Computed example of a mutant assay.
Amino acid sequence: MDPLSQFLTGPRAQSAFTLRVVMDPPFAIDVQDEAALTVIVAVRGNAWISAEGSPPRSLGPGQAATVRGPAPYMVADAPGRLPTVVIDPGQSCRTPAGEHLEPTMAQGVRTWGSSPDGRVVLLIGTYQTAAAAGLLVTAALPALAVFDENEADPVLLKLLEHELTHTDLGQESALDRTLDLLLLQLVRVSARRAEGVLPSWAAGTRDPIVAGALVLLHQEPAEPWTVAELARRAHVSRATMAARFHTAVGQPPMAYLTAWRLALAADRLAASLATTAVIAAEVGYSNAFTFSAAFSRVYGVSPTSYRRSAQNTDPLADRVHPN
C-alpha cells in the first residue's frame, strides 16, 4: 500500500469536508483551516488561488487545483484583494473582524456562499486528516497545482457536482469516493508532468527501476531491506539503484524506508492500542528501544507521548515533515 492509498484508506482516514461554494464578486476567502490537502474545482466563473510560496493562479470552468496544507491560502475573484471571509479550523467562517458568518452564508445542503446563484461556483473537497502518511502524499505535490480541462477528468468533475447538488442515500460515501478518485488522478498527473516535478515517492514511479523498489518498500516495510537487495531484485548494480532512487525520490532508499516505517507507526500509534513493541515489529524494528529512539529523533516526542497527544487532542503530525 503506497502513501496515497494509506492516506485514503488507512486507520486514520476521515471523511473529507466537501462543499459547493457560490460567490458574487468582489470576494476574497482567506482559508486558515490547517487542512492537509484541498481539491478545488471551478464549475462557473473564474477564481484566483494564492498559496504560500506560489504566485496567484487563475482557475476557470473545468479546471481543478490542489492546495497543500497546513499553510493558509486565498480564493478570490481577483488577485490582491483583501480578505472578506476567513475560514478557521473546523470550517467555521467569520469576517476578518471576527463576526460569525455561518447563518448568513449557508445556502442550503452542502452549499455555502454570498449568493444562492453566485456568478462563481466552486466545488471544494478538504482532507482534514493529519495522518502521518498524508505528509508523504502532500510532499509529492507543489504548494499549489492547477490542472487544465484535459488533465482533470470531466466525468469525475460532473459526478462530484451531481453528488453535491442532489441529496440521496449514501451521499457522504459517494462524495468521499468520488473525491478520492479525483485526487488520485490529479496526483498521477502531477507525478507525470515533465516540468516542475518535486522529487518524491510519486515522482519515483516514473522510473521503472525506482518504481519497483518503491513497491517492495511499501508492501513489505518490515523486511530487512538493503540497497544491495533492492538492486538485486531490479537486476541493476547497487550504485545504479542508489543514484536513480535518490534522483527521483529526493533521498536515499534507506532514508525513505525509515520515513515510511515511522509514518506507518505514527498512524498506528494514533489509531490503535497496540503496544510500542508490537508496532515496532510491524514496521521493521528489532526492538522497542531502537524504534523509540528513531521515532523521537524524527517526531520530537516519544511514541507514548505522540499517542497520548494524538488520541486526546489534535495529532502532532504537523510538527514534522517525514522527508
Rank of each mutant, 00 (worst) to 15 (best):
A78G: 02
R244M: 12
A132P: 01
A97I: 00
A71L: 14
Q14D: 05
G98F: 04
G62F: 02
V197H: 02
F295V: 02
L273S: 03
F7H: 12
A51N: 04
T38K: 10
S173H: 12
F295W: 09
A132R: 01
H218F: 15
L159Y: 08
M23F: 09
L257V: 07
H246L: 15
A242V: 06
S292W: 14
V41F: 06
T226H: 11
A242M: 08
S200N: 01
Y127G: 13
A317R: 00
E99Q: 08
A16E: 10
P208I: 03
A255D: 15
G53A: 08
S190D: 13
W260V: 13
L169N: 10
A213Y: 06
P56N: 04
D153R: 05
G80Y: 08
T178K: 03
T240A: 14
G10P: 03
V189N: 05
S92H: 11
A78W: 07
D30Y: 12
E151P: 10
A64D: 08
P221V: 00
F291M: 14
F245V: 11
L230Y: 10
V320I: 08
E102H: 07
Q32S: 03
L19N: 05
G90C: 07
V137M: 08
V215S: 10
L175W: 12
P221W: 03
S115T: 04
R110G: 02
E195D: 10
R244Q: 15
A97E: 15
D117N: 12
Q107A: 05
E151S: 11
D30G: 01
F147V: 13
T276Q: 15
R193L: 10
T18S: 09
S286I: 07
L156E: 13
R268Y: 00
D176Q: 14
L169I: 12
P56E: 10
D176V: 03
T178H: 09
A239K: 11
T313G: 12
L157M: 13
A35E: 13
G108A: 05
A140Q: 06
E34W: 07
D314C: 00
S92Y: 09
R238G: 09
H321Y: 07
V39N: 01
L262K: 07
P103I: 01
L141G: 00
G196M: 09
V67I: 15
S92E: 11
A13H: 00
A78C: 05
T18N: 09
V227L: 08
S200K: 02
D88T: 08
A231L: 06
V227Y: 04
S305M: 15
Q185T: 03
V85W: 02
V39F: 00
H162A: 11
A317L: 03
V137G: 03
G250F: 07
V236I: 10
D30W: 10
L82E: 10
P303S: 11
F147R: 11
L122K: 06
A35L: 08
T205F: 00
D33Y: 04
N287C: 13
V298W: 14
L122D: 05
G10N: 00
A76S: 14
T138D: 10
R261S: 07
E223Y: 13
M241H: 08
P83N: 00
T240V: 13
T247W: 09
Q91F: 15
